[in-house]
Design a protein around this nucleic acid. Sequence first.
DNA 1: TATCGTTATATTTGCTAATACATAACGATA
DNA 2: TATCGTTATGTATTAGCAAATATAACGATA
Lengths: 112, 112
Amino acid sequence: MSYKIKSRIWIESENHVLLGEGRVQLLKAIETEGSLSKAAKTLGLSYKKAWSLIDSVNKSAKKPVTINSTGGKGGGGAELTDYGKQLIAVFDEINKNCWNFLDEQIQKLDEL
Amino acid sequence: MSYKIKSRIWIESENHVLLGEGRVQLLKAIETEGSLSKAAKTLGLSYKKAWSLIDSVNKSAKKPVTINSTGGKGGGGAELTDYGKQLIAVFDEINKNCWNFLDEQIQKLDEL
DNA sequence: TATCGTTATATTTGCTAATACATAACGATA
DNA sequence: TATCGTTATGTATTAGCAAATATAACGATA
């Protein structure tokens, strides 16, 4: 029975959220599913919610994070750009480092 | 025009939030104001909201964080325990360290 | 040109959380 | 025992967000 330290990090651009845990999760699902609607379904969130998140990401980022195509065979789909994949990788790395850092700090709480 | 990394940390006890930024702010206001109602007023939040936050803190913590007294001269009031003050100090220190840590990580974003 | 599953978007509905409001209890002091 | 400003608690209202629903546009393919 001891205290735990939790944390959340996110990336902002122009005072708007660019990437957080939820958006990263959604982007990863797009990468594996190949479409926004399927990604939304696997994560259990509405298509509209998923779309607005991705729209926000692409509008905030310096370069496009996904390429969304409409029509054509299969009806269209969505895929990550190389830039998007790099962003996710950096986010994951920083997040992991942050957790490790906080794990080292927790002893200060146990001493109380 | 560059990305920024933001973070939030909080302390949990038994899977419930014990301390976060908002609660720390409220506790600090209680320390300076001497009462929960005045603290709520200065922070612009309803008394009920403030009360439920403090109630939650005291129920989650290993030891009492505030002493609330009712009646008497002045009608009563609230003050921090020594334990509460220590808790706040540790939270602030860890939070500051976390920010410094993330500042060092941000270069990874600038390289994209 | 008809079909298909997708992206894109507007509108409405419903639910949860925050707020506002009201009131009781408290106890030192005069 | 009347007063006061506080803590403590319940109830009702409001508001903001999430979900559901509906529909248009798209373009390769058959």
